[in-house]
Amino acid sequence: MATDVRRVGFVLLPGTHPGALMPALSVLLSANRMAEQPCYAPETYTLDEHPLQADGLSVSPAPWQHCAPGLAQLWLLADQLPPAESLPPALLIYLQEAVAAGVLVGGLEAGVAGLALAGLLDERRCAVHWRMLDEFRERFPDVEATTHLFELGDGLASSSGAQATTDLFLTLLAQEQGQDLAALVAEDLVVERIRDGSERQRMPLRNRLGSSHPKLTQAVILMESNIEEPLTTDEIARHVCVSRRQLERIFKQYLNSVPSQYYLELRLNRARQLLLQTSKSIIQIGLSCGFSSGPHFSSAYRNCFGVTPREDRNQRRAQQAAEGVARES
């Protein structure tokens, strides 16, 4: 376990609620407590000398120009996408220099726009909260905005916000201080599991489907509620009070799929999540996701993801083992 204290800077952009700091701070402070020694030293900054106040919370950060050399991480936080003119050019240059110096630079929720304005995300991926996704894509067409929980790599990071920020900081904690401390912190924060960044945000159903068609919404809710014992297409149609043919037309029109294929992919994605993040046996996972046998599950999984469940799990374990060796070396 590393013993050097890592300085972590947070720059809160104008209008940011002080509570936006809490998911990240909770992880860092818990890590110090669980390790029984200081691992992280959080520092807060704003664009000016004015304190931030909201709902009884008050934070009195220093101006960002007071950032001293030696930061290990630097994060921008914002509640809303900031106008380009609201960020001083000197700050954007500072972000570029920080990345060049090996500092991990990231954006939390709308703070990711600062990284885009600095040109750090051109032709790169970043996680953007679903509610600001369209605006972000319009403003930054050269950036690949995703609905993943978070993106991490090449010295840059982004989080869609809230609980996803907790997942991101727990992932970083595991990389920097080891899986054991990350597990202790997750337990301390009553986090059931550390979600992978590639998981997608749980958007409102009508946003995920791209439609508010009531019958389509009802059908998908039924599917999501019946993973272990799948319903037939006829049963779903009967529950939502349409004919099978009408239900198939709705799925074709709005999702370019048929109900059975959409349902199958829904179950397989759930199975993959369990496979990569739990220790349940492959047979248990297959049965819990509505597959009647191991061969049936394996065949459907390979057709969807290009690898068998066992191969996928082994690849993930090999990757984790390699990352562990790299941390210890």
Rank of each mutant, 00 (worst) to 15 (best):
L71T: 03
A78Y: 01
A98G: 02
A127L: 08
W64N: 05
G70H: 06
A78W: 00
L81K: 03
A68H: 09
R131Q: 12
A78Q: 02
L74G: 02
W75H: 03
V112T: 15
Q96G: 12
A101C: 09
V105M: 04
P88F: 11
V112A: 09
A68Y: 05
A110V: 08
W64A: 08
V99E: 04
C126T: 06
Q65M: 13
W64V: 10
P82C: 04
L92A: 09
M132P: 09
L71V: 05
V112E: 03
A90E: 15
L87Y: 06
L133K: 09
L115K: 03
I93H: 12
R124T: 02
A98S: 12
A98I: 01
P83V: 06
C67W: 11
A100Y: 07
A68K: 14
F136Y: 11
L121K: 01
V112C: 10
Q96H: 06
R124L: 01
A127S: 14
P89T: 07
C67F: 09
G102D: 02
A110R: 04
V128L: 12
E97L: 13
G119A: 07
L74V: 07
C126V: 07
F136D: 06
P83A: 11
D79C: 08
R124F: 02
G111E: 08
E109K: 14
A84P: 09
S86D: 11
E123A: 14
E85F: 13
A101S: 13
A90R: 10
R125W: 13
G106H: 05
G106K: 04
A78R: 01
E123S: 14
Q96E: 09
L95G: 00
L77R: 01
A101K: 12
I93N: 14
L77W: 01
H66W: 14
V105Y: 02
L133I: 13
L92T: 08
A110T: 08
E123C: 12
L92C: 11
G107C: 06
G107T: 05
M132L: 14
A101N: 12
H129C: 11
R124M: 02
P69D: 05
Q80N: 14
C67T: 12
G106Y: 04
L121G: 00
P83L: 07
